[in-house]
Design a protein around this nucleic acid. Structure first.
Lengths: 219, 219
DNA sequence: CCGGATCCGGGTTGATACTG
DNA sequence: CAGTATCAACCCGGATCCGG
């Protein structure tokens, strides 16, 4: 990217991360952890393969990303954030928070990935009964499956299935987001395309208690 | 900007503010308040005039900016942030904080504007003696002049001169930044191109007490 | 299948000139 | 002062190809 040539820390930061796709690559590495090239590509639907390669090189040169050659047997490289790169987490968080109201428009061409739930989970959900034993909740949105683990008073999300989950939540991504943000009472969820099986108590345990104003009301 | 077409609030946010120059226009409106077109242009050195006009139109359409026609006497239009646009303040702050270490490279072609000190002032300076009477400190960096007002335990910056200031700080922008960030002890400042006149007590009152690790050490 | 490199068309940006 | 017009240069997106 061309430099803005301004002696201002915001401009200097944008000189480094202002290129198209750069911050989304950081988002992906934050959400997935160290990733292979191909996994990054699938987590960044729409990116041209040459652009991903270009950006990763630039980000490596800028000290945001490290390329780690895996040991001989696998022979596949991993990309991971450096500490400096991970320092962009707060920027991503604030951008994501600001963008929440925009989630009310879900267009057919919008892609969705399970790991993109990690930020909303951290932002909206909490364990309201930390004393209780751990539970796990499977989330199925579109064709993506992820698992919310609740333990030690903390809520976290991982990719993959959990056949023995205490509950499952199934529905289109925007409905699930609305549910998580506190704008869709659990009681009304089933009327809006959400299906819940198993322990509703487990779900109630982590949903926001007060309705957030985050996402616009349902139509 | 082309949409990323991803159902993720970070991607949606970047769909709106990810274009080149857009966040810097927000920075400028945050730092200066409602501004005329020409003032924006001078606060965004390097921007092409057609791009500024384009961006302002897009930002108006996106609800970030309002165009206010001033009352008859002046007959000049002002651009101001909407509440939604001002909500980007935390994004700008985090970007600016992340960019602080990059301020160690000051290149000859880097432009500088007095209002760009507003973020560093808010980030680094504080009134350590809130009980004392108000003071004002004039800052001269490059050809820019600004005034730091200290009153009611708060520190703020405004553009313009203060002939009756209690103290003045003069020096190149990077040295002043280093001083503000706590990485240049006041005692050594004069050896590094900083000139201070008037009450050093007034200056000491607002400088950080502990040396921050923000900006890299001096060469 | 993984991890890119190369090529090309089109859209965006940048610089400058010009205008009400 | 507040933009519009024009055009060249650059960047991005999409497709294709290539070596392990």
């Amino acid at each position: 990217m061309r430099s803005y040539n301004q002696y201002c820390s915001v401009a200097k930061a944008l000189d480094v991360v202002g290129d198209r796709w750069t911050l989304l690559i950081v988002r992906e590495l934050l959400a997935r952890g160290p990733s292979r090239y191909t996994d990054l590509r699938s987590g960044l639907p729409g990116i041209a393969t040459n652009l991903l390669a270009d950006r990763l090189r630039e980000m490596e040169a800028a000290g945001l990303v490290e390329r780690e050659d895996a040991p001989p047997p696998v022979a596949t490289a991993l990309f991971r954030l450096t500490e400096r790169g991970a320092g962009l987490g707060s920027v991503i968080s604030e951008l994501g928070r600001w963008g929440v109201p925009l989630m009310s428009d879900y267009r057919p061409q919008d892609a969705f990935r399970g790991q993109w739930l990690r930020l909303p989970v951290r932002m909206f959900l909490a364990d309201h009964e930390p004393g209780q034993p751990p539970v796990s909740i499977e989330v199925r949105a579109e064709d993506q499956t992820a698992v919310i683990d609740v333990a030690d008073g903390r809520v976290s999300l991982r990719l993959g299935a959990a056949p023995d989950a205490d509950a499952t939540i199934t529905g289109p991504p925007p409905r699930i987001l609305t549910l998580f943000s506190g704008n869709l009472p659990l009681a009304e969820a089933e009327d809006h395309g959400i299906r819940i099986t198993g322990s509703r108590e487990a779900v109630r345990r982590i949903l926001p208690r007060d309705s957030g104003q985050a996402i616009s009301k349902l139509p």
